[in-house]
Write a protein that binds this DNA or RNA. Structure first.
Length: 576
RNA sequence: GCGCCCGUAGCUCAGCUGGAUAGAGCAACGGACUUCUAAUCCGUAGGCCGUAGGUUCGAAUCCUACCGGGCGUACCA
């Protein structure tokens, strides 16, 4: 029997009993995790059923408990007031959890959805005038976790991004470079391309105070760019190339990848065509001043502009084009936009406009918003250079990890040393971000926030490494069907229970597009292992069968951790 | 002004489609390494779940109002 079948089997029988005894066919019931003081694997609350069957929950619970059959895996089912608690036979519990984990390995807990769908996930979507910062890290880390969660549900996921590579902000950096660049290049300065370009963007913003005419220069340049001025276009592609090269390195480091990359410079004109079609269809109106607008006041939104009076496109124009292109290319069942919460309004407008333009797929789009990242000094402001730079942060975390490794009992030599430190640093950043519900703002205090102790990425990696070390010393790899007799202690049962509930957690986490659920659960799983590990000997257990069984349980836990860490984008380590 | 989001332990957060005694981590304090990795484990202390009403057998969870914080409400992105 698979873990995933357990709920259904239990619920089916409860429904049958209630149907028979209370003449009440379809009762809404669900399984849940019993509280800690209850010694059972699964719980069912009888309140909703009681309402439907018109009798007390206690009566339902006691009746079901009395009538429930005796499958070979069930130890007992007890009514505790309005609750039903199911306790599995320890053997069956260990058998089920260990066999399934050992055979599914790093895919342990993946439950395919009833229907496999094509889901396009947009994330990252940076401006190409400055390096990535902590806000982008949150976006990328979240995006990848969502992608992994949906993939684990058996969906075909298309990771997508759009590079905002055109517009006034890009021209600012270009003017900055033309003014202060003096022919320097990233190579000549030994800088990553995105950092190099970012310097001139900052230089522009700094100089604009004293030299307001720079702004006119930038506007002229935008016009020249749109008209295809060769010199401007040339500078533009050179600078964008530098930035792209820099982003590439950062993305590789974080683990971000994209199957579809769109460029605003290519899609903005497409958006304009969409708007023109909307005009022709009478959905959009052209005002006397030449601007194109749509009135959404009947939808609770304001009048929104779609094209400027001078005919140039605004932010939303390109998003129309981007969306249309995506559906033309992939016709996805769902599109998930991973974009910060400050753009909630923008996406409400976007989806509504698409709908009014007659695109039936508009309701397949969803904005997954996430909270801001605040520093102790307040909100990050890239214009003022008040940001936590992504590359710098990753460097610093890696260096901190290297320091901690100095005092570790385990020596790691050569290139592995740096790689391990890198994985630990990245794991710390990712876990720190993913453990927080996406909806919530994150308050980032570099001194306190990124640690390697407690509920951290390092904790998961450490626990995993510990198990790997044990398995190496054991000199064997437990296989499904291993004898699991002798496991019985509370710590062993607690660990097995956390594995039992893992598939459901993963499923819920994917359904809710909420990786923090997985993150929190993994910590608990790791903690259960560590508690077990401290209390019981594995390699020198009292007898060979117990040793085998404990090794198998440990290996099962390692698979659970590996499965979850992979979904969060945290690298499992064999030594640390 | 209007709209959306968030207020849970000193700090950072779980728990929120109502359900069993509100849980972790950090920080504090006290313990555990000649023994499978102490980046670990065990224990102590710490809470009018922002406030006030309401719905309910039952509210941190749902509703209303208010208070506090954030974001948005651009011919910025």
């Amino acid at each position: 029997m698979k873990i995933q079948d357990l709920d259904r089997i239990i619920l089916d029988e409860i429904r049958a009993i209630i149907g028979r005894e209370f003449k009440c066919p379809t009762v809404e019931i669900d399984v849940s995790i019993p509280p800690e003081n209850v010694d059972a694997e699964l719980a069912v609350a009888c309140f909703p059923a009681a309402k439907q069957a018109r009798c007390s929950p206690g009566k339902i619970a006691s009746t079901v408990a009395a009538r429930f059959g005796q499958p070979e895996w069930l130890d007992n089912v007890k009514a505790a007031g309005p609750y039903l608690n199911f306790r599995l036979k320890p053997d069956a519990l260990f058998r089920m959890v260990i066999d399934q984990s050992l055979s599914e390995r790093k895919r342990f807990g993946h439950t395919p959805d009833r229907e496999s769908r094509t889901v396009l996930v947009e994330y990252s979507s940076p401006n190409t005038n400055k390096p990535l910062h902590l806000g982008h890290i949150r976006n990328n880390v979240l995006g990848m976790a969502i992608i992994n969660l949906l993939t684990a549900r058996g969906h075909r996921v298309i990771p997508a991004t759009i590079l905002n590579d055109r517009g006034i902000h890009i021209c600012k950096a270009m003017v900055g470079y033309r003014r202060f660049g003096n022919g320097r290049t990233p190579d000549s300065e030994g800088l990553k391309g995105d950092h190099f370009v970012g310097r001139f963007y900052v230089a522009f913003e700094r100089e604009i105070q004293a030299h307001p005419e720079l702004m006119d220069e930038a506007r002229d340049m935008l016009r020249d760019w749109e008209s295809g001025d060769p010199e401007v276009r040339n500078l533009w592609s050179r600078m964008n190339g530098w930035v792209a090269g820099g982003f590439d390195r950062t993305y590789r480091r974080m683990g971000s990848r994209f199957e579809l990359v769109q460029y605003e410079s290519e899609t903005y004109s497409l958006g304009r065509k969409v708007v023109e079609q909307g005009l022709a269809d009478g959905v959009l109106q052209r005002r006397d001043d030449g601007s194109v607008r749509i009135d959404l006041s009947d939808f609770g939104l304001d009048e929104k502009i779609m094209l400027r009076a001078d005919g140039t496109s605004v932010y939303i124009t390109q998003d129309l084009g981007v969306a249309v292109e995506r559906f033309q290319k992939f016709n996805p069942d769902r599109v998930i936009y991973i974009v910060g919460s400050e753009q909630i309004y923008h996406f409400r407008v976007l989806f509504e406009v698409l709908k009014r333009l007659g695109y039936g797929w508009a309701d397949r789009c969803r904005h997954l918003s996430y909270g801001m990242v605040y520093l102790p000094e307040g909100k990050m402001k890239s214009r003022e250079g008040k940001v936590v730079d992504a590359d710098q942060l990753m460097d610093r975390m890696r260096d901190m990890a290297l320091e901690v490794m100095q005092s570790s009992a385990i020596e790691i030599e050569g290139a592995d040393r740096l790689e391990t430190a890198e994985a630990i640093g990245l794991g710390a950043i990712k876990y720190f971000i993913l453990k927080v519900n996406p909806m919530k703002d994150i308050h980032f205090d570099p001194r306190a926030s990124l640690a390697f102790e407690g509920a951290t990425g390092a904790y998961l990696q450490y626990t995993y490494a510990r198990i790997q070390s044990m398995l190496r010393k054991a000199g064997c790899r437990p296989e499904p069907g291993e004898n699991v007799g002798g496991l019985e202690s509370p710590e062993e049962i607690a660990l097995a229970r956390s594995l039992l509930w893992y598939p459901n957690t993963l499923r819920d986490s994917a359904e809710e597009l909420n990786p923090s659920k997985t993150a929190g659960y993994l910590f608990e799983m790791a903690r259960n292992f560590n508690t077990f590990y401290h209390k019981h000997r594995v390699l020198d257990a009292a007898c060979p069968t117990l040793r085998t069984a404990r090794l198998a349980l440990s290996a099962a836990a390692a698979n659970g951790l590996e499965s979850g860490m992979s979904i969060l984008g945290i690298q499992p380590l064999h030594r640390m």
